[in-house]
């Protein structure tokens, strides 16, 4: 079912960071595929979730050693692309939203200029068309007064607004795949959900694919279609979001159990007892009898 309109296929991705104390194997032999769906990449810090997202767009620093059997996007082999060819894919076909919008925007130009420029670069349209499209996009990300926001400088917008602007900028070339690296974790809960709703609508209406990188298991479970759980650079399990709470993988269970809940209390929170066996490549294959492996 996923195979039909598959967007992205990653097979045996490895990422190694050399360091004076020996190489750090940040990601080891991970494989997954993505269709027109919302897939969540969840893990704790150091699990390799962010570097995985960046490796797809080759955005890691040059000293990182990235190797993979396959990274293909819409059937094209991204590994064989030159830096120049990849630049055409970046932004136009695959966009990425990072955690802190203020660092990604140019501080001396208005947000409107920056968004329409992104559009002009990729679509070769006139300035007035770009402006119109920008205003439309700002409205789509639920900015109520787009004309006014168009003229603001990045330091004049709030965090929530900034993140929406960033998303508008990434979405205006109508990419087929959006990689969102903790796009909302700096935002308040309500704003966070509103931003997610925008992404959700784009997936359902435009048939975009979304890789949502997050540390928040509950949020991903309620937002995404499928969840990839990473730990120590390995994929622990790939599971349908609806089944997440019934997961039998000890790491997933451990993570779920140590979350405090609004409704229950008074018991001690259970803590996660880590097991080196999880890092064993065969562990989850043997544990996972449902065969959600792809």
């Amino acid at each position: 079912m996923i195979q039909q309109d598959q967007l992205l296929q990653v097979t045996n991705l490895n990422i190694i960071f050399p360091s004076p104390k020996g190489d750090v194997h940040a990601v080891k032999d991970i494989s997954f595929s993505l269709g027109k769906e919302k897939i969540g990449l969840v893990g704790e810090s150091g699990s390799g979730k962010s570097v995985t997202g960046r490796a797809i767009l080759r955005l890691l620093p040059p000293y990182a050693k990235v190797s993979a059997e396959e990274i293909s996007f819409k059937g094209q082999d991204l590994l064989s692309f030159s830096e120049k060819e990849l630049r055409c894919i970046r932004g136009k076909e695959i966009s990425m939203v990072m955690q802190d919008p203020k660092y990604s925007l140019n501080p001396v130009r208005t947000v409107g200029q920056q968004i329409s420029e992104a559009y002009i670069v990729h679509s070769k349209v006139s300035k007035s068309v770009a402006r119109e499209q920008t205003l439309k996009m700002l409205t789509a990300v639920r900015i109520r007064n787009p004309e006014q926001v168009y003229k603001l400088y990045p330091h004049e917008v709030s965090g929530g607004m900034g993140q929406r602007i960033m998303i508008a900028m990434m979405l205006i070339p109508e990419p087929s795949l959006l990689i969102a690296d903790e796009p909302t974790s700096a935002l308040d809960v309500t704003v966070q959900l509103q931003v997610l709703a925008i992404l959700d609508d784009l997936v359902t209406q435009r048939g975009m694919g979304l890789i949502f990188i997050s540390h928040d298991l509950e949020l991903v479970a309620s937002f995404c279609d499928r969840v990839i759980i990473m730990y120590g650079g390995r994929i622990m399990e790939v599971i349908n979001a609806a089944d997440l709470h019934n997961s039998t993988h000890p790491y997933t269970r451990g993570l779920l159990n140590c979350l405090p809940r609004i409704e229950g209390r008074n018991e001690r929170l259970s803590t996660l007892v880590r097991d080196d066996a999880w890092l064993d490549a065969d562990f989850w294959h043997s544990n996972d009898s449902d065969g959600i492996i792809i």
Binding site: L217, G254, L255, P260, L269, T271, L272
Partner: peptide, 10 residues
């Protein structure tokens, strides 16, 4: 991280 959060809260 959530697993560390649980330890610190406890």
């Amino acid at each position: 991280d959530v697993s560390i959060q649980a330890e610190v809260l406890n």
